[in-house]
């Protein structure tokens, strides 16, 4: 990673810190490739003895960026927030690509057992979940963020609590109700 990119990333993070939402968009190209690569690594590990851990993926992407850019990442949890958002974006982008090809196939069923969801429907399921999550964010932004961090970022309750500076118990409670709400909305689709 070049010097220029380093200072650019630092600047972007600064902007993000200052509440500039479009900083995320600018950060995307830097982090996107790394996260995508990490996602591939993770997914190809199905034969290994390790559970797929998106947390690890985010950690990995984070560490690699930190290492390569030489930035001292003061705010670790801050990065997880970004990474979860990006992870969501990456997965949704891919789902869109995929769904575009299969446009017009079967109607969607979000089944209780994930293993029963046909592959060709999973991409659509991600897209739907993405939409529903946007809806949730309209009336409970924090809860949507928690879902995003957990489902897309693979963070656990403790990590989320740290990132959002709330108690772990609160995260647990929010997750509980969010889960019910999301599932109901998914079932309606």
């Amino acid at each position: 990673m070049s010097e220029q990119q380093n200072s650019e990333i630092t600047q972007i993070l600064q902007d993000w810190n200052d509440g500039n939402e479009n900083a995320k968009e600018r950060l995307l190209p830097f982090v996107y490739d790394e996260l995508k690569r990490q996602a591939r690594i993770l997914m190809s590990r199905e034969r290994s003895n390790h559970t797929l851990q998106p947390t690890a993926l985010v950690h990995e992407a984070f560490m690699r960026l930190a290492e390569q850019s030489g930035i001292d990442w003061q705010n670790r949890s801050h990065f997880f927030g970004i990474a979860s958002r990006l992870m969501r974006q990456i997965l949704v982008d891919h789902a869109r690509l995929h769904a575009a090809e299969k446009r017009g196939s079967n109607p969607i069923h979000f089944s209780v057992d994930d293993l029963q969801i046909p592959v060709e429907q999973r991409a659509d399921s991600i897209l739907i979940l993405n939409d529903i999550l946007d809806q949730l964010a309209e009336f409970d932004e924090q809860q949507a963020q928690i879902v995003e961090m957990r489902f897309f970022g693979g963070m656990n309750n403790a990590e989320i609590a740290e990132a959002l500076e709330i108690s772990e118990r609160t995260v647990g409670r929010e997750w509980q109700s969010a889960k019910l709400w999301l599932f109901r909305e998914l079932s309606r689709n």
Binding site: M43, P54, R88, L91, H94, A95, F152
Partner: peptide
């Protein structure tokens, strides 16, 4: 209305988006 989904929602969120996406992720 939400309570009706208590049992079913358990499984959904145990898996992660990454795991969920893996089958279509590779193609391109």
């Amino acid at each position: 209305s939400l309570l009706a989904f208590e049992n079913e929602s358990e499984d959904l969120m145990r898996l992660s988006a990454v795991e969920f996406s893996k089958d279509f992720f590779d193609e391109a």
